[in-house]
């Protein structure tokens, strides 16, 4: 129990916005920047903006989730943290599960909050915002899980930042289809499917991540 607490405390200190590692506010700012730039690029067509704004928020959330991937697991493997944990009998799966929670907490809730100002920037109405918020709540844990899986698979590679971003995008397509798709169907069906995909991803992420980190050790 004390181990779990220590792990979570260290992870939160490293990943929450305003943490000591410094660049943890970037995903949030990036998310807002995309939402802000979009109306400039599209022009002042309120109808068009309102129709597409929800989808843009989703794409911005996906891109923001990709940003911290290269520092999610790789530094701890390089610095020997995972070796030390292994010698203490602390399973990689547990470390990865804790890291997944910390990673989601570091961007999920903040992006959901930032969706309020973002919705004003892209000019979507309250009802659409409601669907976007529920969708993000259901979808961001899945985005975090994909991030963890990709970060663990690319752990031993040099210059893994660009590659992990590229690998994340196809995996995130189902989440995006159902999450952003719920906007046009106006509905709970899409959000429920988004939540289901998220749950599956969250369930397999610790095991996939643990296996990938052990495999990287043998290399």
């Amino acid at each position: 129990m004390s181990t779990l607490g220590a792990l979570l405390k260290r992870d939160l200190a490293a990943f929450l916005p305003g943490s000591t590692r410094g660049n943890s506010l970037l995903p949030l700012l990036f998310f807002l920047a995309v939402a802000m730039l979009y109306p400039f690029a599209i022009g002042p067509d309120a109808e068009l903006l309102a129709a597409t704004g929800g989808g843009v928020i989703w794409v911005a959330a996906l891109l923001a989730a990709i940003l911290p991937l290269d520092r999610l697991l790789a530094p701890d493997v390089e610095n020997g943290f995972f070796d030390q944990w292994a010698l203490r009998g602390i399973a990689e799966e547990m470390v990865v599960a804790v890291r997944l929670l910390a990673h989601w907490l570091s961007f999920g809730p903040f992006i959901i909050l930032a969706a309020f100002p973002a919705s004003a920037l892209v000019g979507i109405d309250n009802e659409t915002l409601h669907t976007v918020l529920l969708g993000l709540l259901a979808g961001t844990p899945g985005l975090a899980a994909i991030g963890i899986i990709i970060a663990s698979v690319t752990v031993g590679l040099k210059g893994n930042a660009a590659l992990s971003g590229l690998l994340t995008i196809p995996l995130a397509v189902p989440l995006l289809i159902f999450g952003a798709g719920s906007l046009s169907s106006g509905g709970e069906g899409g959000i429920a499917l988004t939540g289901a995909i998220s749950l599956v991803l969250v369930a397999i992420a610790p095991f996939a991540g643990g296996a990938a980190i052990r495999a990287a050790r043998e290399g």
Partner: peptide
Amino acid sequence: DERLALDEH
């Protein structure tokens, strides 16, 4: 070993 396992920052 040569890896410190201490947070650099």
